[in-house]
Amino acid sequence: MLIDALEKMAMVADLLTDEQRKRAVLMQVFYKVQKENNYLPEDKLREISEELKIPLSEVYSTASFYKQFHFMPRGKNIVCVCVGTACHVRGAPKVLEKLEEEFGVKAGETAKDLSVTLETVGCIGCCGLAPVITLNEEISGEVNAKKLKEVVDIVLGKTNVQLTS
């Protein structure tokens, strides 16, 4: 069984050229660098380009294709407003406007003190809870003025309470 799998792997390895192989590891490298630095710094991308002998323009091109890679430092907290259809109907634009005002940044931007990054997302798959926002890994549904204040307070460090979902 194990030998079988190994043999198959060797067959795959034969099919891949060196060029394909180094491009295949590119995504993994991006993940690692982003995890360590919380974004993809230019000097690191330059290192990747030199190490893998892939042109820098192509490294940028590949990374920028995916929304999850970032070229600017990100905030300590990531607040994400769902602007999918259901959330839109249930008031997402107002939620976003309020957060932009509170954090002093536009959607897609990071506060100068790196306290927060505000983003929008197409749909996170819980339309029944619209309007939805996420704070880091946690979800807050049926957002109202009170819940929004909670999120703002947590982000701006005005409270230590946990997010009520």
Binding site: S49, P55, S57, Y60
Partner: peptide
């Protein structure tokens, strides 16, 4: 053309309607 002649300066950034031809960064 930049790529095939080996200069490799230009590339696409982003995707879809927002893509743009750029240099690295």
């Amino acid at each position: 053309i930049c790529k095939e002649q080996g200069t490799n300066v230009l590339g696409f950034m982003g995707r879809g309607v927002d893509s743009k031809v750029i240099t690295a960064n």
